[in-house]
Amino acid sequence: MWKNATSCQAGASHGAGIGRKLNVRLVLKLVSVLLLAMGTARFAGSQDSAEPATFPAGADILQGTVTGVEGGTYQVKTEGGATWKVFTGVNTFFRKQRDPIKPADIHIGDAIVAGGEVDQKAKTVGAVFLAVIDPAQAKEIEQRRADFGKTWLAGKVTAINDLKITIERPDKKAATIAVDENTSFRKRHDSITLLDIKPGDRVYARGALQNGLFMASILTVVDPNQRRGDPAARP
């Protein structure tokens, strides 16, 4: 056993209180990320740190492989080798392929994503949700992580200077997106121009690094009021 019964009980109590502490907006944010991880949306994010613990960047999400199970507490190892503990409780949603499952359906070796109250220092998550993902989904998530900042970027526009757009990434880091006459701009089904983009807009850019600068081939303004199921919302 990798942890004693006392700590397990404390962890379960921690998880049980998560739903009461989180506000509705955060819960909706985490649920939307769960839907993303299960393949129902294409908008994704990641961190480019050496040991990315969360997915997408800025969202309180942990991804890894279950290495231990005790009651409602799961030990999870990330791809980078860090060990985390995920506490669950009565307010935790459990899913697999978008279908509800029971805590007992999660086993050692399963790839999971979990979201809730993340303590980076203690490496713990008080989970609002925990989802089992298949190997293909896990591989896709890791690939998106690796590609972030190389083939795509996303964030909130903070400044526009000539042909350079400064954004705040979901992890609060700044990034610059360069555009030129070959960049396609769009919002929903409509073509727009650089002049239509304003600070505060949330954008998703596809492109490539050129001389250390991210050059966008397509830049999409993401409508926060648009339903994720709408194809126009997909960059």
Rank of each mutant, 00 (worst) to 15 (best):
V128H: 00
T124M: 11
A122F: 08
I167P: 06
A138C: 01
E117R: 14
V118Y: 14
A104H: 12
V118N: 07
A154P: 00
P135R: 05
I108W: 08
D119Y: 13
G155N: 01
I108C: 12
G149C: 03
K139I: 01
E117D: 13
E117I: 15
K156Q: 14
E140I: 01
I106W: 10
L163A: 15
G109M: 06
I165Y: 05
R144V: 01
G109N: 09
Q120C: 09
N161I: 12
G149A: 07
I141F: 01
I141N: 00
R144H: 07
I141H: 02
I141A: 01
K172Y: 11
L130V: 10
D105Y: 02
I165L: 06
I167C: 08
K139L: 11
T124N: 08
L130A: 02
D119L: 14
V118R: 10
D171K: 06
L163D: 15
A159V: 06
L163S: 15
I112K: 10
A146V: 03
A154W: 05
F129L: 05
A136G: 00
D119V: 09
G149H: 06
E142L: 08
A104Q: 13
E117L: 15
A131D: 02
I133P: 08
E140W: 08
T151D: 02
E168G: 09
P135F: 00
A136W: 07
Q143F: 02
I133E: 03
A114W: 05
I141M: 06
A131N: 02
I106H: 10
I106N: 10
D105Q: 10
P135N: 04
F129V: 03
E140Q: 14
T166Q: 13
K172A: 14
V113C: 12
R145G: 10
T158H: 04
D110A: 15
N161S: 12
K156A: 14
R144N: 14
K172Q: 13
V157C: 05
T151C: 01
A127V: 03
I112R: 09
Q120A: 15
T166L: 11
I167S: 11
A111W: 08
Q137E: 10
R145K: 04
L163G: 09
F148R: 05
G126Y: 06
Q137L: 02
P170M: 12
I167V: 11
A114F: 04
H107E: 13
H107F: 09
V132T: 07
A136P: 00
A127D: 03
A111R: 13
E168C: 06
I141S: 04
D171S: 08
A104C: 07
A114S: 14
A127P: 00
A127E: 02
V128F: 10
L153D: 01
E168H: 10
Q143G: 04
L163K: 15
I108L: 11
I108D: 12
I112P: 04
Q120S: 14
T124R: 09
G115H: 08
Q143R: 15
P170Y: 03
K150H: 12
K150S: 04
A131T: 03
H107T: 12
V113P: 06
A146L: 05
G116A: 11
T158K: 13
G115L: 11
I141R: 09
E140A: 11
H107L: 06
G149R: 04
A127G: 01
A131P: 02
D119C: 08
I160V: 05
L163R: 15
A146T: 00
K156H: 09
A159G: 09
F148D: 00
